[in-house]
């Protein structure tokens, strides 16, 4: 689904990501760990194609296409969606309208989606304007529900979200990915198996989200270098006990 090869990324003249290699096969959920400033968000922004993140060498492949130089909206239409860590507010633009824009050509019931994200009361507010931290996350998830991408990039989806809403968030992510028990209850086993599964890359510091979603693999980003790839819970355990630096030392 997603394949990153020897990717080097500069921001404002500084190399932030160094020779990143990462592959997320179809249907897999990968977790990205790393200390503050290690370059996690930078990696997501680069996958999405935001300006200011200059790819100086390497490639990004998605669904077999080289998207390294592709405009943002084409990547989105090809099936990549991001929940941003710090989304901008847009004055005068109603959240309701953005959600239907996210759906593109697909028909969508905004109210119904908003109910899933516990966000009905916010539909008539300006997008992200004065949203609380947790509300911002739900707004992002609601937009992704409408967009329904094949690869979801989630940048700290649970940070600042209260306990009840974390449960909800887990459900939304599972719905987005077509995974989880609830999702399976809704569909027959055959329908479920025949459905194309979606992939995800999830950034988390706390690991809380791992209680709600099934992670296939975890990675550690340290100083712009991906240094470890193994079971996500194992990595989390390591980081908790020994810290990132030790984690980095072990890998190298």
């Amino acid at each position: 689904m997603l394949k990153i090869e020897d990717l080097v990324v500069e921001v404002e003249g500084h190399t932030i990501l160094n020779r990143i290699n990462l592959e997320i096969p179809e249907g897999e959920t990968h977790i990205l760990f790393g200390p503050n400033g290690s370059g996690k968000s930078t990696l997501m922004m680069t996958i999405m194609g935001f300006s200011g993140y200059r790819v100086t060498s390497g490639h990004i492949w998605f669904k077999g296409e080289d998207i390294t130089r592709m405009p943002i909206h084409e990547r989105a239409r090809l099936g990549i969606g991001v929940a941003f860590q710090r989304p901008p507010a847009i004055n005068g633009l109603k959240t309701r309208d953005v959600v239907s824009l996210c759906a593109g050509q697909k028909s969508t019931n905004v109210e119904e989606l908003a109910q899933k994200a516990n966000f009905v009361d916010f539909l008539d507010r300006d997008l992200n304007l004065n949203f609380s931290g947790g509300e911002m996350k739900r707004s992002e998830m609601l937009q992704l529900l409408a967009q329904s991408p094949d690869l979801v990039l989630l940048d700290e989806p649970e940070s600042g979200v209260d306990l009840e809403n974390v449960v909800l968030l887990g459900e939304i992510i599972n719905e987005l990915l077509g995974r989880g028990v609830r999702q399976r209850e809704k569909e027959s086993a055959i329908a479920h198996r025949s459905k194309k599964s979606k992939s995800a890359l999830v950034i988390t510091h706390t690991g809380h989200i791992l209680n709600y979603i099934t992670a296939d693999k975890g990675h550690v980003l340290y100083n712009g270098v991906l240094c470890c790839a193994r079971n996500a819970r194992e990595i989390l355990q390591w980081i908790r006990e020994y810290g990132y630096e030790e984690c980095f030392r072990c890998a190298s």
């Binding site: 999405m48 935001f50 300006s51 405009p71 943002i72 909206h73 990547r75 989105a76 239409r77 969606g81 991001v82 941003f84 989304p87 901008p88 847009i90 953005v98 824009l101 996210c102 593109g104 937009q143 967009q147």
Partner: peptide, 10 residues
């Protein structure tokens, strides 16, 4: 770019 990431052209 935020809106472009939702699939809107520039």
């Amino acid at each position: 770019e935020y809106l472009m990431a939702r699939g809107l052209d520039e």
